[in-house]
């Protein structure tokens, strides 16, 4: 089974680290993984996105023309990517920043007020982790435990940072 996830938002929202976290967690679970960030002129003007492909078999292409899961952390990404999602796919919207109406009826929309929740947790920068938690739960791509282990591997010795992010991740996970 091959599943592709696209994560998009402003630069600085941590969308690339969301993708990396997901990719490494899947790797930890022994799956085939590719991670592809958008690069170059596309990312001028402050937007960023990345694609993670997870599969039991070899992955033919790391590019996703119609991903199963799309995460839009900001409004421009919601507008840009809503038409790319595979029919029956899941569209994760950061409802703190996305107001646009979604015109498609053939996908499930998952609204997460990521920024608001992160602020309530006292760590506004961890909005990406709240969303990642929600993605982990609703998509079932990887186990929460693998996510947390990856978080620790990436952030290493910075215990406080790990704690903050772990809390945000769990909060997002427990939303659903």
């Amino acid at each position: 089974m091959l599943i592709k996830t696209l994560i998009a938002g402003f630069g600085g929202q941590g969308v690339l680290s969301m993708g990396l976290n997901l990719a490494e967690a899947a790797m930890l679970e022994g799956k085939n993984v590719t991670y592809l960030p958008a690069y170059g002129a596309e990312v001028r003007g402050g937007t960023a996105n990345c694609t993670v492909a997870i599969s039991d078999d070899e992955i033919a292409s790391p590019v996703a023309s119609s991903p199963e899961f799309v995460v839009a952390m900001n409004q421009p990404s919601a507008v840009k990517f809503q038409h790319h999602i595979q029919s029956g796919g899941l569209f994760f919207l950061n409802s703190s920043l996305v107001e646009v109406e979604i015109l498609r009826g053939d996908i499930e929309i998952v609204r997460v007020a990521a920024n608001k929740i992160a602020e309530e947790l006292g760590s506004p920068k961890a909005a990406n982790m709240v969303m990642l938690g929600a993605l982990t739960r609703k998509s079932g791509l990887v186990e929460l435990a693998s996510m947390i282990e990856t978080l620790k591997r990436i952030m290493g010795a910075k215990k406080k940072l790990v704690d903050v992010n772990e809390k945000a991740l769990k909060t997002g996970y427990d939303l659903f």
């Binding site: 990396l20 993984v33 590719t34 592809l36 960030p37 690069y39 590019v63």
Partner: peptide, 10 residues
């Protein structure tokens, strides 16, 4: 090519 260079894999 560009994709091979940019993509991450184990």
């Amino acid at each position: 090519d560009g994709v091979l260079g940019q993509m991450m894999e184990p």
